[in-house]
Design a protein around this nucleic acid. Sequence first.
RNA 1: GCUUCUUUAGCUCAGUUGGUUAGAGCAUCUGACUGUUAAUCAGAGGGUCCCAGGUUCGAGCCCUGGAAGGAGCGCCA
Length: 583
Amino acid sequence: MSVANLTRESRSITFSGNGILKSKHKWESGLKLRKNSSKDLRRLVFRAPCPIGTTNRFNWWSERSVDCRFDGTPAYFILEQWNYLKIESSNYRINYLYHFNKVEMKREKIADVLTNGQVGNDVLVKGWVRSFRANRFVAINDGSTIKNIQAVVDFENFDESLLKRITTASSVAVSGKIVASQGAGQAIEIAVEHVEILGDANPEEVQKTVMQPKKHSMEFLREQAHLRFRTNTFGAVFRIRHAVAYAIHKYFNDEGFYYLHTPIVTASDAEGAGETFNVTNFDPANPPLDENGAIDYSKDFFGKPVNLTVSGQLEAELGALALGQVYTFGPTFRAENSNTSRHLAEFWMIEPEVAFNDLKDNMDLTEMFLKYIAKYVLDNCSDDLQFLHDREVKEDAQKPTAERNELNLIDRLKFVVDNEFKRLTYTEAIEVLKRSKPYKKKKFKYPVEWGVDLSSEHERYLVEKEFKCPVILSDYPAEIKAFYMRQNDDGKTVAAMDVLFPGIGEIVGGSQREERLDILKSKCADFEIPEEDLWWYLDTRKFGTVPHAGFGLGFERMVMFATGMTNIRDVIPFPRTPQNAEF
RNA sequence: GCUUCUUUAGCUCAGUUGGUUAGAGCAUCUGACUGUUAAUCAGAGGGUCCCAGGUUCGAGCCCUGGAAGGAGCGCCA
C-alpha cells in the first residue's frame, strides 16, 4: 500500500510531550510527521481496541510499534486498522492525518495467494461465495483458479446480520491473515478479520439457478449459459478454451506465421463450404425491386448480395502468396440446419496457409501443431484438466463398460502428444474397411465403395476400432472434395487430407491447393463456379504461382478434445444453433 | 432435414393393469450443533404432472394433434 492511496485530511495537530491521540475516525490509518524540535522521535506506538470487523467490544488491546528516525524529510506511516496513536516522545507536530473508510489493501488473486501466500501475511481477496459451511467456513472463488480459498470466520466475533448475508453466489471482500489450515482439504486458509458484502444473493432465487450447490444436467446448465461460468466445470472449460487459443497464437508466432484478419462480411460463397447467412440492410417486408420484380441488391449497402464468411481460406491464400506463411483465427458462420453435438452455426476456425508446402508438409504441420496444443494444455492447465478428468472418470464409472472411454482425458491428450498419427490414403482406407468385420457382417448402414464419401460410422471404425489413434486420411476422389484442391497425377484424386480424432470425428480438413491456372479454371467449370466471381483468386495463379497448402481447424472441436466435453455447445460461451440465439 | 428417446417440486428422478390426499434425494426456509470441506440432526414450505383436445364414472398413466429438449444420422470444421 502506498501513501498515495490515502485521502489527505487537512488538519494539523501539535504534540507536546508524550500523549495519546484519539482519532475521531474509526479507521484512521496514516499520518505524516515532521520533526518540530531537535529531539529525535524514537518510536511510535499504535494501539487498537479490537480488530476491525469484530463487534465493538473494548475488552482487549493490541499494540504495534514502529521505530523511526528523521533526517528532516517528512515520513509516512501506515496505521491501518489502528485508531489510537500514542507518541513516546515530545514536541512533534503531526502535519497531516490521512484516513480512509476501509482497509485499502491491494486485492490479490486467489490463484496467487494459494501458490505464493506466506503464513502470517495479511491478504485481501474478493470473489464469489461457493459455499458457507458450519457458519464458519466460506469457500471463495474469483475465477483465477478452479480452487477455492477457505476463509474462516470466528462467528462468535462477527455480527450475525452480516454473516446471514454470506450466502451461496454472493460476492464478498475478505481480509485477514494467512494461516496454516487445521482441516485436511487445504494447506492454507484466511483467518478473517474483516468481511464486506459486495453483492447479495437471495437464496430463494439462487436455488432456481445453476449456482445452487448440487450436480446439474448439461441441458439445464446450457439454459443458463449466463450463469454457468460460476460452476467448476465451465470455469475449467473456459480457462482451457483460453489456453488453447493462446497456444495457437503462440505456436504460429514462434514458427514465423503472420496472423491475418480476413473479412467477416464477404461476397464470396464460391467455395461451397455450406449455406450462408445473408447480410442486408433492406427492410425484409419491403425491399427495393428491379424492373423484373427481383430484389435489387445494387441499392443495398455493399451494392451486391453479401453474406457472413464460411471460411477465410481463399483470402488467407492471397496473404500466404506474399507473406509466406499466415493463419486466420476468427468466427465462421454456416447456416446449415445441422442438429448434432459437433456443429454450430457460429464457430471459430483456424486456417493456416503456407506457400511452398506440399501435402506432406501440410500433414507434418498439422500433426506438430495439434501435438503442441495438447502439450500446452497438459503443461499449463493441470488443475482444470485434473478436475475434468476426475469428472469424466466418475461419470464413466456409472456407465456400462462398453460406453466408457478406453483412455481418460489426460491419457488421451498424452496419447496425442506421444504417438504418431496414422497416415493412409482414402484408397487404402476403403480397403481396410472392406476387410473389416462390420463390413463382412454387413453392419455398416452406408455403402463402402471407392468414390463415396466416408460417413461417420466408417470414420469412427477407423479411428476408434482399427487404429485407435488419430488418423490422417489423404488423397480423396476429386468429386467429393472442393474445387481448389490440387489434382493428383492419377487424375482421379486430389491432394486433400482430413484429420480424424477419436470421439470428435473430423477435426481438421486441409489440402494442397491447385496452383496451376489452367487446371484451376477447368475445375471452376466442372463445379459451375463463374470465373468472374473469383478473378482475384485466379490472379495469384497468374503472377508467380507456387505450390501451397493449408488446413482448417475447428476451434471448438479442439476445445472439446482438450476438455473431454461431449457436446460442442458446452465449449463456447453462447452457442448459436438452429432455433437458438439466446443471450 | 430424417430417425429415435424424453418432458412430473428449484434440480435429478420414481410413480404398478387407469382408482382415495402424486412421492424420494438434493436444494431452500426454521431450529439445534459447530474445524467443516457432498457436514450432521429435527421440522416446514414447495406441483398448470409440457400445451390443446378426446375416451372414461374416474387420466400423471390410454388416444389425436402440437411444442420444447437430448442422442444418432446427413451436411461439415
